Amino acid sequence: MGGIMIKILICEDIERDKLHLHQLLDSFLLANKISYKIDYLENFDVGTNLFLEYDLIFLDIELGDYNGIEIASKIRTYNRSSIIIITSSFKKYLIDGYKIEAKRYLIKPIDEKVFNIEMQSVLSTSFKQQYGFFDKKISQYKIHYKDMLYIEFLNRHTIIHFVNNIEKKTTYPLKHWIEKLSNKGFGQPYKSFLVNLDYVSGFSSDGKDIIMNNGEKIPLSKNFKKSFTNQYFANLHNIL
């Protein structure tokens, strides 16, 4: 999974179900060489800001005096990106799961084979689109890697250029982004640029620039040409 770290939140108040789900996740993610961090939600009377940092949320329908669907509805009022997987001992809540855009509905006790099949499906489709990070200094919402076109160092600031033509200025040095985006599909063609390899459409005829899929040209220096070209073709191979 190319160094991606998945942040997972388990919302479950039954200890045996909590441990069983954790074991299923450990087994599946380790077998697939996926880096991850699992947290538990112990207090269900919390603000929904907590949920913004998680990529994947496992949510039991019945959480003591709390209703998992109501919690999920609050999350969905301003957080559309986190993937929610409902867990329940009862099929009667299935329709409610669709209402809050849950990706999967798992009946407890969760069968390992069923779990592995469903997780593989989630990771290979919708989950790939959710990779990103949460940084309150830049945005109150999660920033997805797929939305970042390139990062430019200019006038002692770094500017994130997004695919929708929006720009965000940050106080971070380019070194910060090089470290943060290492193994996440970004390459450095020039000392002041870091680009999303998925949006590189090719190279100029003289080999001095790379061409982004929106037509923009970004310089390609001799010092970075070999390493960048290797990254570009490796990424292209992964896509194909």
Results as ranks from 00 to 15, higher is better:
54 Y>K: 01
13 D>K: 05
161 H>P: 01
214 N>C: 10
40 Y>Q: 02
43 N>G: 04
223 N>C: 02
162 F>I: 03
75 I>H: 11
109 P>S: 09
84 I>K: 05
202 G>K: 08
98 Y>C: 03
157 H>N: 14
69 I>V: 11
3 G>N: 03
13 D>T: 05
71 I>A: 07
196 N>R: 02
179 E>I: 01
155 N>F: 02
188 Q>A: 12
93 Y>I: 12
167 E>L: 05
147 D>F: 01
177 W>T: 02
222 K>E: 08
85 I>M: 14
85 I>D: 12
26 D>G: 02
33 K>V: 03
137 K>M: 07
74 K>N: 13
64 G>R: 11
158 T>V: 08
239 I>L: 12
157 H>Y: 13
8 I>F: 04
29 L>A: 07
1 M>G: 14
158 T>I: 05
207 G>Q: 02
74 K>S: 05
219 P>L: 10
240 L>E: 05
221 S>A: 04
140 Q>M: 09
84 I>F: 13
27 S>C: 10
82 S>G: 12
32 N>L: 06
3 G>D: 03
237 H>T: 11
134 F>D: 08
28 F>I: 06
31 A>P: 00
13 D>F: 02
61 I>D: 06
10 I>K: 01
102 A>G: 11
122 V>S: 10
213 N>E: 15
203 F>V: 03
161 H>N: 13
176 H>W: 13
196 N>S: 09
124 S>W: 00
207 G>E: 06
182 S>D: 15
186 F>Q: 00
93 Y>Q: 04
30 L>K: 15
48 T>C: 10
58 F>Y: 14
29 L>Y: 10
190 Y>K: 02
124 S>E: 15
211 I>E: 12
99 K>A: 02
64 G>N: 07
224 F>N: 08
108 K>Y: 12
52 L>G: 01
131 Y>F: 13
235 N>M: 07
121 S>C: 13
118 E>Q: 15
227 S>K: 14
188 Q>D: 06
99 K>W: 00
108 K>P: 08
225 K>P: 05
190 Y>L: 00
217 K>T: 12
68 G>E: 03
222 K>V: 13
